[in-house]
């Protein structure tokens, strides 16, 4: 319990987090996905979604050149379309933070860095802390950490809590996103429990996945996490952000996610301060849809830059 924030809170016993009925969640999600989002609300929603993207490249083969290109794209999504918003952030490995920070300059776009031995998190705590401090020192505005899924599944919730709290301290001013890697947690009960541990330990955001494990950001998982955020807010008055990541590549699914945010935690979360999409190819699909709304016809994918 190192985090200063956690001292003010009544930390619950994480063995007894609320249970989740999977069938019920599936029904609710199906209901949300039957919402019809058309015309102005569709355009408005897609622009909002663009502005919530963490444009991501997390590959072993990433180079400074590749990151620079991505940063240019982040600021110039599609110059043929006037008054488009920019994305929220660019998400990279710690070694690329400096390059990204420089390339983005004073555009207002944040640099997010994964850390804590991303994606597996299989490293000792001191190395995770060093990894985080390095990213922050390089200029990262946001840190995306992974939880220790092995410890979580073994029932060592205190270990997971303390680790998140320690990383939070190492983040300093940087906002902390805690990746639960829900594909490895398997059940929605576990997703709920991990969400609570992360929030009470000081997470600014909770995030579904690394993008390296399937399934990633399913609507069911995001719904479960949003309901946890809502309950946490009702209890503590503290807003926590949500970031589904991995598998959201179509604008329709992004819009369904937004309507889910609206109907669970409410309109206050419909802002990139509180909601993000971790995605690489979503931006282009939204751009294609936006242009289609203007012209009435789908353009070839070749008209949209692939970075």
């Amino acid at each position: 319990m190192k985090s200063s924030a956690s001292k003010k809170l009544n930390i619950p016993d994480f063995r007894f987090t609320p249970t989740i009925d999977k069938v019920g969640v599936e029904e609710r999600v199906a209901r949300i996905q039957s919402r019809s989002i058309k015309k102005e609300s569709k355009v408005e929603g897609m622009k909002m979604a663009l502005n919530m993207i963490d444009l991501t490249t997390l590959e072993g083969k990433d180079t400074p050149g590749k990151v620079k290109q991505l940063c240019y794209k982040a600021q110039h999504l599609h110059d043929h379309y006037p008054d488009l918003p920019t994305v929220a952030a660019v998400c990279v490995y710690p070694s690329m933070v400096k390059t990204a920070k420089k390339a983005l300059g004073n555009s207002g776009i944040k640099v997010a860095s994964v850390s804590t031995a991303f994606p597996s998190g299989q490293a000792p705590r001191n190395i995770k802390l060093d990894d985080t401090k390095f990213a922050v020192d390089q200029g990262a505005d946001e840190i995306d950490m992974v939880i220790s899924r092995g410890e979580f599944l073994a029932g060592n919730y205190d270990f997971v809590f303390d680790e998140i709290a320690a990383i939070k301290e190492a983040c300093g001013q940087a906002r902390l996103k805690v990746i639960l890697e829900t594909g490895e947690l398997v059940t929605l009960d576990n997703v709920r429990r991990a969400s609570e541990i992360a929030m009470y330990a000081g997470a600014d955001f909770i995030k579904t996945s690394t993008g390296k494990i399937q399934p990633a950001a399913t609507m069911q998982v995001t719904y479960t996490m949003l309901m946890a955020i809502k309950d946490y807010y009702d209890k503590t008055g503290i807003m926590v952000g949500m970031k589904p990541a991995g598998g959201i590549s179509k604008s329709k699914l992004a819009l369904h996610n937004l309507i889910m945010v609206k109907e669970t935690v409410g309109d206050d979360w419909l802002d990139n301060e509180w909601f993000r999409f971790g995605a690489s190819s979503l931006a282009n699909d939204i751009l294609m849809q936006l242009v289609k709304q203007q012209t009435g016809a789908y353009q070839s994918g070749d008209y949209f830059s692939i970075d």
Partner: peptide, 23 residues
């Protein structure tokens, strides 16, 4: 907490995203 109340107040000023009619 104070910080969060501010955040909340700021967030509340935003306009809401409403669904267009879909008859």
């Amino acid at each position: 907490m104070a910080k969060n109340k501010q955040q909340k107040a700021k967030a509340s000023k935003k306009k809401t995203w409403d669904l267009s009619p879909a008859p």
